[in-house]
């Protein structure tokens, strides 16, 4: 499978990338890890005339805590997350998700920024970032702007990034005592997209009352989805298995999966419910351990 011909431009700074982008307009595509774009180009679903390689722009590959915020540079790879001590110690949800993305060799190339910018509801980071209530930082020729994750996913492969924007950073409120997160997905085999995936980020107080909760779903809705009704059912209440069961039931009801090779609509609703229950419990376990 040979992609269509294109011209290749390597940007070494953001400014240089914007200059190329403005010159080539609609005919150009940014390339980061290439593990969504290149497969699409090989299938000729995508035939950009110009590729602007942003993968060597310096200073966009980091995972750090600063001013009460966890900051992840857009070019951070899934393998960087998987092997990060900071993530292992304080953000295990990010280790959960990276380990479930693709396979070990894919993770060496795939970037977190690309995973979000691609705007694919089958990708795993969108649900996680919804659960974590992330802020997405984009930079374009006219400067930087913030996009709350709830406004980021617009439709089928469509995001709130403007034409020449480069997603540069993902910001997540730093974890604190009582906070725990988890991600899990059902996949047919390693490297497959989720049949369903559930991300939960939960904060409880010492009496197990839910202070804050985020729940995001993967691949059971046309766009990555927050389960607002389940979050409302939990927030301010003391966690019990009965309540968790109720939140799971809501997730199964409120998502909108389509039948495909991965299963029927009913099956997907049913595993979304079960996964939600399990993932809330896992997040709760971690939240309690942090108190």
């Amino acid at each position: 499978m040979i992609p269509a011909s294109f011209d290749y431009h390597r940007a070494s700074t953001l400014q240089e990338a914007f200059t190329f982008a403005q010159e080539y307009g609609e005919d150009a595509k940014y390339l980061a890890g290439g593990h969504s774009l290149i497969p699409m180009m090989k299938l000729r679903f995508s035939e950009p005339a110009h590729i602007i390689d942003i993968s060597r722009i310096q200073g966009l590959k980091y995972i750090k805590e600063e001013d009460g915020i966890l900051k992840i540079g857009a070019l951070t790879t899934e393998a960087d997350l998987e092997f990060s001590d900071l993530c292992h110690d304080k953000y295990p949800i990010l280790v959960d998700v990276s380990k479930l993305i693709g396979d070990p060799s894919v993770r060496n190339k795939a970037t977190v920024g690309g995973n979000l910018a691609h705007g694919d509801a089958a990708n795993d980071h969108p649900a996680v970032m919804l659960a974590l209530k992330a802020n997405i930082v984009a930079e374009g020729p006219n400067g930087t702007h913030n996009i709350p994750v709830d406004e980021f996913f617009k439709g089928f492969f469509e995001t709130a990034l403007e034409q020449h924007d480069i997603l540069i950073e993902i910001q997540i409120p730093a974890t604190k005592a009582g906070n725990g997160g988890a991600y899990n997905k059902i996949e047919r085999k390693v490297g497959d997209y989720a049949t369903s995936g559930v991300a939960v980020n939960l904060t409880v107080d010492t009496s197990d009352t839910v202070v804050d909760i985020g729940i995001g779903l993967t691949n059971v809705n046309p766009v990555p989805m927050r389960v607002s009704r389940a979050e409302e059912a939990l927030k301010g209440n003391k966690l019990t298995q009965e309540l968790i069961e109720k939140a799971g039931k809501i997730a199964g009801e409120d998502c909108s999966p389509t039948a495909d090779l991965r299963g029927s609509e009913d099956y997907k609703r049913s595993i979304t419910k079960e996964l939600t229950i399990r993932t809330i419990n896992k997040a709760w376990e971690r939240a309690k351990a942090s108190l």
């Binding site: 290439g34 593990h35 590729i51 993968s55 393998a79 070990p104």
Partner: peptide, 25 residues
């Protein structure tokens, strides 16, 4: 199609699928 790994090489020490990388990269 980026799945089987028969094309795996080491790129700066990391295993990668060389069917999913352009030479220019």
């Amino acid at each position: 199609t980026s799945h089987c790994g028969a094309c795996t090489i080491l790129l700066n020490g990391d295993s990668v699928k060389s069917c999913t990388i352009f030479t220019v990269q």
